[in-house]
């Protein structure tokens, strides 16, 4: 019975000046968000949320995870997903909920003990909703990040054919186990598909080489060798060469070249192709 009463009180607070509260809430939020969200869109979002909240409280919802709150949660999820996609910060997202507390503050000034208690209870619910917003926000960002990582993985490992029987993999970005696996599989498959006996791994775009990256490179090269292809590593910058020596990494029996051009020259010589330069550049 007590619960029922307090629910009614909460509704009472929210519907004191019904429409007025909702619009001052919207004003408050749009003040903090600036012009990055359309006025009409914000208006619609918050008004729906407000109505859903009042309805949930009327049905006796006392915390965020109550069944009556499902509508509110759905709306909040959509709101924070949108914010996350549009690149708002977590606090800018959560402020949408917390602003309602600030809007309600004036009610306390001439309120009775009843009102204060109801306000505190509502405050707890709003805190819960705020946390829920942030949780959803983080979740959406995580999804975005993993989707981007996946796209990056696909983008960053092309195998190109340089010559008949010579293929190259220009690596860009840091190498980790997952990427090495993809690179290895693609390179080996390309060896089979093109019948190439020479492979060049170009690491011009790899910012740093540590023992782990070297280990990954070695694995790829050994696997290629097992299939009957010879691998050359090219694009080793002066800094990386120094790091490799300083770390004591041994590229045993693996040919390394400073530039892709040198590696290609070697690969061509190994496959029996002679390049002849003609005087004056014309035949």
């Amino acid at each position: 019975m007590v619960k029922r009463d307090s629910a009614v009180d909460l509704v009472g607070i929210l519907s004191v000046e019904d429409k007025d509260l909702a619009s001052s809430w919207i004003r408050e939020v749009s003040g903090t968000l600036g012009s990055r969200v359309g006025k009409a869109e914000l208006d619609r979002e918050l008004r729906e949320l407000y109505e859903a909240l009042v309805e949930a409280l009327r049905q006796g919802a006392t915390d965020v995870h109550a069944e009556q709150m499902s509508e509110v949660r759905a709306l909040l999820t959509e709101l924070s997903r949108n914010r996350a996609r549009q690149g708002f910060s977590p606090s800018e997202t959560a402020i949408s909920v917390f602003a309602l507390k600030r809007v309600l503050e004036p009610l306390l000034e001439d309120g009775s003990a009843e009102v204060v208690r109801a306000y505190l209870q509502l405050g707890r619910i709003l805190d819960g909703l705020g946390l829920f917003t942030i949780e959803t926000y983080t979740q959406t960002r995580d999804e975005l990040i993993s989707a981007q990582a996946e796209q990056l993985l696909e983008l960053s490992t092309p195998v190109v054919r340089l010559w008949d029987g010579v293929i190259a993999v220009p690596l860009v970005g840091t190498l980790d186990s997952a990427r090495t696996q993809v690179v290895m599989e693609k390179l080996l498959q390309a060896l089979v598909d093109t019948g190439s006996e020479q492979a060049i791994i170009d690491i011009t775009g790899v910012p740093a080489v540590d023992t782990q990256v070297a280990q990954h490179l070695l694995k790829t090269i050994v696997a290629a060798r097992l299939m009957g292809a010879e691998c050359t590593v090219s694009g080793i910058s002066p800094q990386i060469a120094q790091t490799i020596v300083a770390l004591g990494i041994e590229f045993d029996g693996i040919v390394t070249k400073a530039s892709l051009a040198d590696a290609l020259k070697l690969a061509l010589r190994r496959s029996g192709v002679d390049l002849v330069a003609h005087q004056g550049g014309q035949r």
Partner: peptide
């Protein structure tokens, strides 16, 4: 030894057999 499949090559490397 000829015709080793990519998957087999990867397995052998992971097993540490070069």
């Amino acid at each position: 030894v000829v015709g080793m499949r990519p998957a087999v090559a990867i397995t052998l490397v992971e097993l540490g057999l070069s």
